[in-house]
Nucleic acid binder design. Structure first.
Lengths: 149, 149
DNA sequence: TTTAATGCAAACGATTTGCAGCGAA
DNA sequence: TTCGCTGCAAATCGTTTGCATTAAA
């Protein structure tokens, strides 16, 4: 089932309507290959022939989340914006973040994924996204600590 | 090294000052056993003899993060507040979240932790927190999906 | 038709910041 | 005596919402 079909089904089951604006937002989200924020999406919408407004974009996003088209990239501090990603385009997605400088390393470990599936199944869950965030201190920052800063 | 010592060292290395307000905030954070938000902390501060103001609390938190006294609990949507936790009091901390209803299951898996350490070490990182967030769909919500909602 | 969806502008609410006075080192 | 810290109030800025209008179903 394509994302478009999934979203249409999601809408009709709840007596919600497929509008031109929602379609354009969906297309734009599907065209995106990486991470995006709401305001980036809003900016891209204003280039389109169907210039979808800011509040409409904000109102569509929860539906795209519920429908499983996009996912939140956990990480948001202060008054930063929420970051989202297209789930369909997504591969394994594991992050190792440095708590001091914020550097992010992406990694993949099949064995961990296998165990994650096992844990989820054990709790009756169907795993939708393999998102894992480890937090530590990167080599450079360890140096700085040793140097006394 | 205690959290107090660590924080004092952190401050003096950077020519920052240990004030009565910072000490009270630190004590309050260390007394906390679970998760807390900034506004909860502000509220508790106003009960104290040294009534630390809101902006001071907001200004101390980044230092507590950098000093490794507290950590962010990843998860923040919409205009919710950021949640923090005292790192010292913390045990293993793994979450399995339902993307539809938001239910959170906590779990622990020694084998996964072992592999996480291995990954971190492989990238030269020193793991500071074993925080893992898996996202899936819980049994109840799977039911609802099957029922067509 | 019915009633959900849209856009605008105003409202919200967590977080940040300018500034004058204060106090640690 | 420096210069970082504090509290207050105002400013920010991502996000939400009220309302009149438009348009799916």
């Amino acid at each position: 089932m394509t994302a478009l079909e999934r979203f249409k089904q999601y809408l009709s089951k709840r007596n919600l309507r497929m509008t031109a604006e929602r379609l354009v937002v969906l297309e734009e989200v599907l065209a995106d290959t990486g991470h995006f924020t709401t305001s980036e999406l809003v900016a891209r919408m204003q280039q389109k022939d169907i210039a979808t407004g800011r509040s409409t974009v904000y109102r569509v996003i929860p539906h795209l989340l519920q429908a499983g088209v996009i996912g939140e990239v956990s990480a948001k501090e202060g008054r930063e914006e929420q970051i989202y990603e297209n789930i369909a385009n997504q591969r394994h997605h594991d992050h190792l973040t440095c708590e001091l400088c914020g550097e992010v390393v992406e990694f993949e470990n099949a064995e961990i994924h296998r165990l994650q599936e096992k844990v989820a199944t054990h709790h009756g869950y169907r795993l939708r996204r393999h998102v894992q965030h480890l937090r530590g201190i990167c080599p450079e920052c360890q140096e700085k600590i040793i140097e006394g800063f």
